[in-house]
Amino acid sequence: MSSHKTQTKIKFCKKYKRINKTIANMIFRNTHKSQVKMFETIGVLIIFFILLSIGISVYFMLQKSSYAKDTEQRRQLQAFSTVQKMLYMPELDCINVFGAVEENCADKIKIKVFNTILQNSDTQNDYYQTFGLSNVTIKIVYPTQEEYKIYERAPKKYVRAFKTQSPILLKDPKNPVNEQHLFGYIEITSYVQE
């Protein structure tokens, strides 16, 4: 009787062990599959974030260069409009015998006087609104070669400097009866700061 009981117990134990092993196998296989899936998801996420960060950095780099271009273009436009303004400034313009303003012309005597006046730093501050941070020069090309530095205010630190020039007629009224017209140009050096 007791041996029958023992045999049944052994059988039961064996069966139990077998079932246990199967369950353990199933659990292990499932866990392994889940782990692989999890790694797959993590991998996809990592790649996605790498791509996203590359995209964002490229976007900001392009934005930065586009901003720099815009700033430069604005400065160029400003320099160009300053040149145009200078052509009609009462401090420089030419007046003919009838009192009319001559087109695209600067008076040489007025240039010399304006140059002297702008040596004063207070006066130079008054013209900051018009010229800003730039250097303004009038150069005579023909028949002689002369240079007049009208305004000088370059920043200490700048990224880029560019020049805008415009041809101009210069009246030399040494002898009012026989006025001479010289050929020259206005040059404005503008600066792009950081």
Binding site: C105, Y142, P143, P167, I168, L169, H181, L182
Partner: peptide, 15 residues
């Protein structure tokens, strides 16, 4: 504008 200014200044320049 540079070209226009060049022509207008050039024609009036004394040689």
């Amino acid at each position: 504008t540079t070209a226009e200014n060049f022509l207008s200044a050039m024609l009036k320049t004394n040689t």
